[in-house]
Amino acid sequence: MLLKLQIEDVSKSYKGSDFYALHEVTLDVGPGILGLLGPNGAGKSTLMRIIATITKPTRGTIKWNGVDTAKEPDKIRSVLGYLPQDFGVYPNLNADEFLRYMAAIKGVEPRAAKERIEDLLAFVNLLEARKRPLGDYSGGMKQRIGIAQALINDPKILIVDEPTVGLDTEGRVRFRHLLAELATDRVVILSTHIVSDIEATANDIAIIDRGRLLVRLPPEELLLSVQGKVWDWVIPSAGLADAKQRHLISSVVPHGDGLHTRVVAETSPADDARPSSSPTLEEAYLYRISSHRRVGDG
């Protein structure tokens, strides 16, 4: 089955404003996980909402298997699983009732829905709490119900916006495994500002900042691109404030001989700084964002 999402020159501005939440974004997405990485307010959620047909782009088109989603939104909606960043639940329904409701809306046959809900509640570990009103759930539990509803129709395209917010460490790891498993024959788009959420699972990483797509690369190529731009530098404690002012510091670890810092920079920050042999994805991300902002701010 063909699974292809084409995002072509998509821009979004809001009425009465010159500000572009998204600016000429182009991406082709196939089966696998595309990780959308960017700081808060970068435009990730806007892009997710446009793909999910909630928001219409000001310019550009999005095609699902060749069909324009603005003209025929139901083509993508019928195979879509969507977990928005900010969503609510009906507080007086319990988990069972809410998932049955969402299954009915998404056209899942009742008997199949019953089995699927059992699986999903076991999967998100809410079997024990299934009869409690959602209004009494904690933030993390609501997030898990959100994950379950996004998977209720066994979607071919899964869009999850900051899905690990409110989950504990173990939950995040498990969720990543699930996504990796699902992504073998599905399109999964995962938006986050937490690099560790996608570094182990994403086939491709797209970095977005201030509404623009900066780069889209596999994680290993992204790491290669920052080779020679991360520096190990030992400085005295008293020099930290000054170093922070002048350089982008990705980590600081105190040692007996001073503070071991890692600096992200095109050139060596000091004569005694040494190029790091193992840059991280987080440093690649910081490098791309800071380079873009330097150019943008002129």
């Binding site: 699927r116 999967f123 570990n125 939950g171």
Partner: peptide, 16 residues
């Protein structure tokens, strides 16, 4: 409530 997705044995059966 135990942490999310505790059991790795849980399999999501596909919908036909």
């Amino acid at each position: 409530i135990p942490p999310v997705i505790q059991s790795m044995q849980v399999q999501l059966r596909p919908l036909h």
